[in-house]
Computed example of a mutant assay.
Amino acid sequence: MTTLGAVRRRLFGIPSAEAVFSRPGFAPEAWERFAPVATSLMEGYHAALEDPGLPALASRLDAVEPSLQGFAYEGAGMGLAALDAVAPWRRRLDAFVAGPGARHVYPVYVGAGLAYARLRRTPESRLAHLDPLLGWVTADGYGFHEAFFKRRRYVERHAVPTRLTEYGRRFFDQGVGRALWFSSGGVVDRVTGLVAGFRPERHADLWSGVGLASAYGGGVDEAALRSVLAQARAFRPQLARGAATAAWGRRIAGNPAAHTDLACRVFCEASAAEAADVVEEAARDLPVISVEPRYEIWRRRIEDGFAARRPAGRPR
């Protein structure tokens, strides 16, 4: 590590992932089940701080176990976005997404959203600099951070982020849903109880985050996933979309995981490969110019794609 890298880590680093998971409100199962996820993210974050040079950074990230590489790239996105805030003329995040981070663009942008939250910057103010379709994912990372690190305000008191637009708040809630899954250690009754405490109009996006987190991060068996589905059956389209998005992200990154396939079979009634196909098909011919955000059109098409696959008369 260079002297400058050591300084950056001292200024921006996070001392202990386990300490974060030990704070009030986190289930004991959270660290037991998701320690590899947390440590991989921290590895990517600190790698970016210590040496943001793209070849060296990519080498460190690719050394992480394949099923966990997405979390390492998420951490790198967080680190690079933080460095760009200090030296915006460097545009490290853009170069990373255009280069070695291209296959992991979804988690990289989630990580950037984490950084924006830590730096008190709204993700929507950065959209013009990001991919026109996937840039919205930064608001998901923003929501995850706030629910994870400001739990009392955003989970217990159900605060609404006033600095985001109405549409940005939907992605914020997806990030909150992901945070609920990880901080609850995938304990289904705990997750369900927390989601129930939010206003009903927020539930769909919260459950989409649960679907995404449970499919991408795993942590539980088939029985637990079927329990999620049983308790949130009204939101099966959102659970399916979240799981399918995880499968699509793993496809383009080339790091499939058995737990992602399992979640797709439960929530989507399809394999991970079939679910990723639905996501890819939904992205075809999206309008270049639209009053409605292109990402929202994509999300709705994904849900409709799974609805079309279900035989008539089958419950949603």
Results as ranks from 00 to 15, higher is better:
Trp207His: 00
Pro28Thr: 04
Arg309Met: 08
Leu229Glu: 07
Val155Asp: 03
Leu127Trp: 14
Val176Ser: 02
Phe172Lys: 01
Ala82Ile: 13
His129Tyr: 11
Pro36Lys: 03
Val137Gln: 05
Phe96Pro: 09
Arg202Ala: 09
Glu146Ile: 00
His129Ala: 15
Asp62Asn: 13
Arg236Trp: 08
Leu164Val: 10
Val210Gly: 03
Ala147Tyr: 02
Ala257Val: 09
Asp62Val: 02
Pro36Phe: 12
Ser22Glu: 12
Val108Phe: 10
Arg126Phe: 09
Ala196Pro: 00
Pro88Ser: 06
Arg120Ala: 15
Glu166Leu: 14
Arg120Asn: 14
Arg121Val: 14
Met42Arg: 12
Arg190Met: 04
Phe198Thr: 03
Arg23Lys: 10
Gly77Leu: 10
Gly5Pro: 09
Gly70Leu: 14
Gly101Leu: 13
Pro52Gly: 08
Gly254Ile: 11
Arg190Ala: 08
Gly13Trp: 00
Tyr167Thr: 14
Val288Glu: 15
Glu146Ala: 14
Tyr295Gln: 07
Pro100Cys: 08
Tyr106Cys: 03
Tyr106Val: 13
Glu222Ala: 15
Thr138Pro: 12
Gly99Asp: 13
Val37Ser: 06
Tyr109Glu: 10
Ala115Gln: 10
Tyr109Ala: 02
Arg151Thr: 12
Phe172Ala: 07
Asp261Gly: 05
Pro66Trp: 02
Gly53Arg: 15
Glu74Leu: 14
Phe26Ile: 02
Leu225Trp: 02
Ile252Asn: 01
Pro132Gln: 06
Asp205Cys: 07
Phe96Cys: 11
Val266Glu: 09
Ala102Trp: 05
Arg300Ser: 13
Glu201Leu: 11
Gln174Pro: 01
Gly101Ala: 11
Val110Thr: 04
Ala6Ile: 00
Val220Leu: 02
Leu80Arg: 01
Ser16Leu: 03
Asp304Phe: 03
Gly254Glu: 06
Arg33Gly: 05
Asn255Cys: 13
Ala308Asn: 04
Glu201Cys: 01
Ile302Gln: 11
Glu43Gln: 13
Val97Met: 15
Arg10Lys: 02
Pro315Ser: 12
Ser67Pro: 05
Thr138Tyr: 11
Val266Pro: 08
Glu156Asp: 12
Ala223Lys: 09
Pro66Phe: 05
Phe12Trp: 15
Gly75Leu: 11
Trp136Asp: 03
Phe12Pro: 07
Gly99Leu: 12
Arg169Glu: 09
Tyr295Trp: 06
Ala81Arg: 14
Thr165Arg: 02
Ser125Ile: 03
Val279His: 00
Arg152Pro: 00
Ile14Thr: 12
Ile302His: 04
Leu286Arg: 06
Ala102Tyr: 03
Leu93Thr: 10
Leu133Trp: 10
Ala273Cys: 04
Asp62Glu: 15
Ala98Gly: 13
Phe149Ser: 10
Ala87Gly: 00
Gly185Asp: 04
Gly209Lys: 01
Asp173Lys: 02
Gly242Met: 02
Glu166Val: 14
Phe21Asp: 06
Asp261Asn: 08
Glu166Ile: 09
